[in-house]
Amino acid sequence: MPGSVLVSLLAVPLAALLWRALSQNFAAHIITHSAFAALRISLVTSTLTTFFTIIIGTPLAYALARWPFRGRPLIELIIDLPIVLPPAVAGLALLIAFGRQGVFGMWLGAFGITLPFTTTAVVIAQTFVAAPLYVRTARVGFAAVDVQLEESAYAEGATQWQLFRHVMLPLTARSLLSGAILCWTRALGEFGATILFAGNLEGRTQTMPLAIYLGFERDLGVALALSTLLIATSIVLLAVLRWLDHSTPDQ
């Protein structure tokens, strides 16, 4: 069956990598200072990215699902673009916009704010590539809620916030969580935009994927150990996603 060829193509390299990593001294490599610093930066930045995305992306997704405002198709296009763009393009675009010589970056510079090569830049790069995944998922979740359910709550005297908190949130929690996990996983794996926009400095901007990439030049053991950790985290998160998709829906 040709399908098994594709499945093998996907599974064999990952299995080989895991086997190789675990047959080396996994623990010794993961306890190195660099690996630990990369792990810390990755966790902090991807969590911040997901946090900001939820705060800002949720109302946006709701508006996109419900309000037929002018320019909505344009906004939807803007949100979908980063999903298909190569990350290197994203990083270049971010530099040209928010870099020290960038259109917006020069203006920020006047206030003494410099973004490139900072941990903030890592969060921005991750948000650029990962937030669209959350907004898309949340938008679909909101759109699936029966409009009459909302109107009925509104007719009963709910404020916008109460409507969201008591009607929309329970019904869309699953979608929002799925979106948040997708966003988080993508942020955790972000490489191309980060290395261009934020650079690579241990303890400040070097995330796990960057450390893995540089590990090729240095110590393959560290790269293998970090890869294993990244794969394990992704497997757990994807399993949670699957569980969310398959347990009975709320509506």
């Binding site: 009459q148 359910l149 109107e151 009925s152 509104y154 007719a155 329970p170 709320d250």
Partner: peptide
Amino acid sequence: LDLIRRATTVFQRPMLLN
């Protein structure tokens, strides 16, 4: 809000929370 809260509607399809 206080005006809105003086009227309410029952729809043809009952809209109930789960």
